[in-house]
Design a protein around this nucleic acid. Sequence first.
DNA 1: TAAATTAAGGACTATTTATATCCTATTTAT
DNA 2: ATAAATAGGATATAAATAGTCCTTAATTTA
Lengths: 142, 142
Amino acid sequence: MQITRQTEYAIRTILELAKVEQGKLVPTKVVSTNQRIPEVFLKKTVQLLAHAGLISTQRGTDGGIRLAVPTDKITVADIITAVEGRPALNVCLADTYDCPNRPVCQVHRILQRTQAAMLAELSRESIADLVIGYEGQQEKTC
Amino acid sequence: MQITRQTEYAIRTILELAKVEQGKLVPTKVVSTNQRIPEVFLKKTVQLLAHAGLISTQRGTDGGIRLAVPTDKITVADIITAVEGRPALNVCLADTYDCPNRPVCQVHRILQRTQAAMLAELSRESIADLVIGYEGQQEKTC
DNA sequence: TAAATTAAGGACTATTTATATCCTATTTAT
DNA sequence: ATAAATAGGATATAAATAGTCCTTAATTTA
Ligand code: SF4
Ligand code: SF4
């Protein structure tokens, strides 16, 4: 019922990237320090975001990571999905599981509706909308 | 991001009780068999529901469990809360955790709103509304 | 071309949470 | 008494989460 630590790391990474000049490469080391995220673990997380196409990576000297998509095209829902896969409130809401009771199950129906409401909220605002609130207090992280 | 199996068991237990004559005691053994829930584990789950006041229990011969609250006063949200505690989409949405970044965190805000939407959906219909859908196919379980 | 820098990716370990069982005690009807 | 049922603590197992380590690959600069 909770997003994972890793997902939090991912969201904060995206926010960090959204705050710098568009297109500028930021080493994971810097994100790790600024956001107090375990460095090696962050690299793993970064890979998930890269595979999902949300960021692009660049190896070598002066390499790093940067957003691959405009901030107004990324939502928290996108980030959660990139890290955890499509959110499912219950096994039967993931398409891999086929519960025999499903056609008549009212619980399924209520959970499905709940999940839709959840995703709608998570998609309502983009990262661009969010960073506005961060203006002027770049260094504060949790 | 998912309800636990135990929570599913709890929901199905409540539905099972809601389907029988109001006030009638049902042994956990019966619920366990009907709903294909591991018996001993179900007893643990039942205790959580009892502590939350959703069901009442009766020991001894012909004992069992029954709803302690009218079906139209129980929602899926209540059951989830009874088993897992108040749902929190992230650590900072549980009142035990105090993130320093919280006053200015936009992520917190978006998750908070999402959680509210989620709980609203989970509370919209009562168990009474749900069991209507089960009319005439009592034996079907998942 | 060599060295330095930085990400990629696989293997592994540790920790925590979820799931389930076992055993003993207590309550209640007959 | 006896049998039927829940209560509850202790414990075991399995799965998911979180995190580290090590080697390889790409890129820039000296
Ligand atoms: S009983 Fe309903 S909610 Fe539970 S797994 Fe089956 S379809 Fe989903
Ligand atoms: S940074 Fe924001 S979302 Fe993350 S824990 Fe802190 S308050 Fe919550």
